[in-house]
Every structure is written in C-alpha cells, then in structure tokens.
Design a protein around this nucleic acid. Structure first.
Lengths: 202, 202
DNA sequence: TGTACATCAGTGAACGCGCGTTCACTGATGTAC
DNA sequence: TGTACATCAGTGAACGCGCGTTCACTGATGTAC
C-alpha cells in the first residue's frame, strides 16, 4: 500500500468516524446505518468494510473519541479552577461531568450502551480512558484521606463516580420528568460535600 | 365476548407475560421474539396481537411486573427490619435494591432500557410505581429532616436513589470488572451514612 | 519519457436473514327457533 | 333436545422492510523495461 493510498484510507477512516459521530449524536448508537454513512461520506458501501471490520468497530471508534473528549472536559474544568480544596475539586469534576452529558446526551449514553459480546473483551483503550478519568478523581480523594491505602481510594473513587453518574443519568432522563440542570448540580454537590465532610445546607 | 372466552384471553395474556419475562431474564429486552413466544406458549403468532397491540406493549407488561416485584422486595426488607433509625432504614433499602438488581440483572435493566417514542408518554403505572418506591425512601428522610419542605425531601429522595442506582449499575457492570457484592454494599452504606451524618469508617 | 502489464483499492448490486405485523380464512362457540 | 345459521376468536402463511455484509468486477495506480 503506497503512502498516498494509506493517506486516503486514513482520511476515509476519520470522515467515517465524523459521520458516525453525527449520526450517534442525533439518534443514538442504534441509528448507525451503513448505507447512510456511505452516502454522507460519499464512498461506496463496501468501502466502509475496507476500513472497519464491521459497524460495531466503527461505533467503538466513536465511543473512543467521546471518552477522550469527556476526559478532556473534566480535566480542563479542574485545570481552569486551579488550586482548590479537595471537596471543591470533586464538585467541579462532578459538574463538568454533568455538563458534558447534558451537552452530548446521545453520544455520552452510547459509551455505556454498547453491548459487547461476552467473549471478546473490552478494548484496552476503554479501560485506559476510564483509568485516566478515575485518576483525576482519585487525586483530591487521596489528598483528603492520605491515611487510606490505594485499594480503598480506588473503591471510594468508584463509589463517588458511580453516584454522580447515577444522578446525572436519572436527572437527564426525560421519562422520569427531567430535572433542571442547576438542581442536578445541587444534588451532586450535596452527595460529594457530604462525603468530604463539608456538607452544604440542603 | 363470553365469560369463557374472556377467561381464556386473560390466561393467554398472563402466559405470554410469563414467557416474555423468561426471555427477558435470559437475553434482555432485545431478545423478545414474537415467534418464540408463540411457540413457547403454544398459540398462533397472530394470537399475540389479539392481546397486545405490539411487542412493546408486552415488554411494558413485563416491566410492570418487575417494577412491582422490586417495590415489594424493598418494602419487605424494610418491614423485616422493623423499627429502625432512619439511616439504617436507608441502608437496608439500598441493599435490598442491590440484591434485587443482582438477582434479576436483565429484567431489572429492562426497566431503564425501554425506549419510549417521545410522543406517547410513559404509562401511568410507571410513574405510580416509581412514586411508591420514592415514598418508601422519603419516609426515613422526612423523619431525619423534619425541617425540610416536601419539595426538598423529594429532591433528596431522588438524589439518594440515583446515587444508589448508579453504584449498583456500574458495580454490576461486567465490562468494568464487576465488584463483589459486599463491596458494593459498603459503597452504598458509605454514601447513605455520610448523608445521614453517621459516616462509617471507610 | 513512453508503453505494456500487474496489482489491488474501491465499487455497488445482490445475498441472506431476521422479524414484526397483517389479514383472508376456518372451525369452535353461541344464538334462534 | 335438535337443527340451521351467525359470529368471531384464533390461525399461520405471506407480506414487507430494513439492513449488515459479501464478492465478482473495474479502473486507477504503480512497476518494469
């Protein structure tokens, strides 16, 4: 394969992911349609399969991007805040998570909806990206509780992340009459601050 | 329609829901197949449509049962515990929720996976059942914080439920390396107790 | 640089399947006399 | 009770559609001389 060909291939790849991302953002993972993508990108139907093994792989590529954007959004929020008390940092991250989810509801959900066949395990970058996100959370936590062994910090990280995730998930759920964003923020802050031991007045 | 006919119809209805429930428990909502159900129940394919408008309605019926079982499981756990401090009650409910989810992973997930077309709203019993569950949680909360207006108790209820839901959801997720049940229990207890102001040592 | 040939990326018609839902039919059930 | 007729619950073959994926082909690109 010549350089030129490879470059074209690479370009097709990224254009396909672009298109797929747009589709997912509009209609969720289930809205990925090979024919639609080909039409939007302007390539043949079969061309998709010269770049990806199947549509699932393409969906995974979209999730990869989303995950990286999410991580970046949270990291940026923390960076913008600069030096801060651990509790404040946690709340900042929780709210950044909420805002990302609210701004990208379908793409964000896609990360968690992806059905993997039990056999083939989760791709490595999935776990890596998760680890990166968890590391951000673990930082203020271990400052807050320097006495805890890493194992416990990990469990704590996971528990708090899960709590915030749950609040965001159900908070944004239309079906259960969505909650206004600032109320969701208040819930997040409440749970996190309570944990940190600087409870806000409810 | 004669009494006899109606009775047969009613019987078919419940047998269909039974079969559907089994299918969902095994393979999730997406595993519902009209032909399979008909075969399992021993009726004609078309008979399904004399009882339900479409498969979605049948899936909803399954969710209805699940929701009621869930509510009953939580209520029973509380009843079994008898008189107890609000914090203990909350933890009991959270753990009951966890155990129900762990024992019925696919059926439980189905409750939240159901895609409703935006237009047709959620069936009434969905909201009622949710309200019943929330009432159970609100009880200890309002004892704990009698100063709060009902509006705030509602928000609190929702926040705590969502947190526990998130912890259970991600805790049971195979993809992110499932967490042992007792660790999940510990996470739930931690978040709830922290809120109540009787934090457990982490 | 020019020509002949080989390769292979890219094409898109066609395959194949799964499946929800319908509807013309039929035989069981009920009604009338 | 018995017979003729009407109704309608229940049947399942067939419709229709959507869609992922393949593969025999072709024309663009690269190579050799």
């Amino acid at each position: 394969m010549s350089k030129k060909t490879e470059a074209r291939r690479e370009q097709l790849r990224s254009r396909l992911i672009d298109a797929a991302e747009r589709r997912v953002a509009e209609g969720g993972v289930d809205a990925l349609r090979a024919r639609e993508l080909a039409a939007e990108v302007g390539c043949a139907l079969g061309a998709i399969y010269t770049v990806f093994d199947d549509l699932t792989e393409l969906a995974l590529a979209v999730n990869g991007r989303t995950f990286r954007r999410l991580g970046a959004a949270v990291a940026e929020a923390v960076a913008r805040q600069g030096e801060a008390a651990p509790g404040d940092k946690l709340v900042t991250m929780g709210c950044a998570y909420l805002h990302f989810a609210a701004a990208n509801p379908k793409t964000w959900r896609a990360i968690f909806e992806l059905k993997m066949t039990d056999a083939d395990s989760v791709p490595g970058w999935y776990l890596e990206e998760m680890a990166r996100l968890f590391a951000l959370i673990a930082e203020p936590l271990s400052r807050l509780r320097p006495d805890l062994p890493p194992e416990d910090v990990r469990a704590l990280t996971r528990a708090l992340f899960s709590s915030v995730h749950g609040i965001v998930l159900l908070g944004l759920e239309k079906r259960l009459s969505a909650v206004p964003a600032d109320r969701i923020e208040a819930m997040i802050a409440m749970v996190l601050r309570n944990f940190v031991g600087q409870p806000e007045k409810v």
